[in-house]
Simulated scan of single mutants.
Amino acid sequence: MTETLEHPGLADFEAHRRMIFGIAYRMLGGVADAEDLVQDTWLRWSQVTWLRWSQVTGPVANPAGYLARTVTNLALNRLDSAAVRRESYVGPWLPEPLVGEPDATEGVERAETVSLAVMVLLESLSPLERAVFVLKEVFGFSYKEIGEALDRGETACRQVGSRARAHVQAGRPRYDAPADLRRRATDEFLAACVGGDLNRMLELLAPDVTSWTDGGGVVRAALRPVTGADNVARFVLGVLTQLGEATARPALVNGQPGLLLAVGDRVDSVTVFEFAEGPDGAPLIAAMRTVRNPHKLTRLNP
């Protein structure tokens, strides 16, 4: 009976696959792009580990560091072309959502750093700032390790990391309602939308709520943010009226409470909420981010 020889680098790669995907997803904002980078990282890793094994030079001393360096630099190379695509993007750009995948949000470590709100903030950083922030704040690499990975000095990386962290902290949602209250507010808003209850919707929306919709120029969507509780509520009801027979259900979106809207067996949109503290202490919806671009929802459709 012939015994199959396992690749000498496979075990280490699988042990760090979640980290590799997490770095790639945060850097590029797309699931398919991140998976491509995971594959490219494997090709490079497999070549290196196979060569070391065949030459009996021993395993790579720090697999996590080597893999993080590889995927980060691959992502940096891709960001130039991604920036060109974003310049011509129609309407607001939002990341491709991770929906109903607890393992995915666990796999990218701290779930709050993969929320759509933080992902949008990462998009506003320079590529170098984004790389340093992700490696340091999310995955806990030291500035010395980051400097070696990015071919930069430790002091320079520390300065870049401090600047990136301050930018993200300034834009990050300041109100962190308990998960059960966020879920309850999401469920109540869903019920009000389905029932066409405008008054109840207004009670659940913060007065200065803002709604972003990513249609990518492929489907109808607001090309600019919609602001104000009355405007947002009427906009949502108008979309539901246009869709006709649609079904909605609560969903986990990038580790946060959200809604999935389907028409027939096709997912039409994914929405995630941010919350502010209301006058009575209950959470109010302060922001809505909706992904309708069908290219970003292909993983959710059969």
Rank of each mutant, 00 (worst) to 15 (best):
F133A: 07
E188S: 12
V160Y: 01
E188G: 06
A221R: 00
R234F: 01
E188W: 06
P127N: 06
A179W: 13
S126A: 10
G217T: 00
A192H: 08
E123F: 07
V160R: 00
T241I: 05
A246P: 15
R220K: 05
S211C: 08
L243M: 13
P207G: 02
A246S: 14
N254H: 12
A164Q: 09
V209A: 07
R158D: 05
G238P: 13
A246R: 08
A131T: 12
A248F: 14
V253I: 10
A185G: 03
R200L: 09
G196F: 11
A177R: 08
L125D: 06
L240I: 06
G215S: 01
L252E: 13
F139N: 05
N199S: 13
S126E: 12
R165F: 14
E245Q: 13
V239E: 12
E137R: 15
A177W: 14
G228D: 01
R220P: 01
E148D: 11
G244V: 04
S211A: 11
R172A: 14
T186S: 14
L122C: 09
F139M: 06
A149K: 01
G153T: 00
A248M: 15
G244M: 09
E123R: 15
Q159P: 04
L128P: 01
R163N: 06
S124D: 10
T155Q: 03
I146S: 07
A229S: 10
V226A: 04
V120Y: 01
E145L: 08
G255Y: 12
G244L: 08
R183E: 13
R249V: 09
D208S: 02
T227K: 14
G161S: 07
P178T: 10
T213Y: 00
L135K: 02
V160E: 01
T241R: 14
A246D: 07
D197K: 10
M119G: 12
L190Y: 04
G147N: 01
D230V: 02
Q242G: 06
E203G: 15
V118R: 13
R152F: 14
A164I: 12
A192L: 11
Y175D: 06
G147C: 04
E203K: 14
S211D: 07
D176H: 13
F139K: 03
G217A: 01
K136V: 09
L205A: 07
L122M: 09
L252C: 05
A191Q: 12
R224D: 05
S142H: 08
A166V: 09
G228P: 01
G228A: 00
L121S: 10
A179D: 09
D176S: 13
A248P: 15
T213D: 00
G217D: 01
G195I: 02
R183T: 09
Q256S: 14
L205T: 03
V219T: 02
K144Y: 10
Q256R: 15
G217Y: 00
N254Y: 09
F141T: 02
D187W: 07
V209S: 03
P127L: 09
R249I: 05
L125A: 06
V120S: 06
V118N: 08
L243D: 08
V120I: 15
R172F: 11
E245F: 05
V132I: 15
R163F: 09
N231T: 11
N199Y: 06
A166E: 12
G161P: 02
P127I: 15
R182Y: 07
S124P: 04
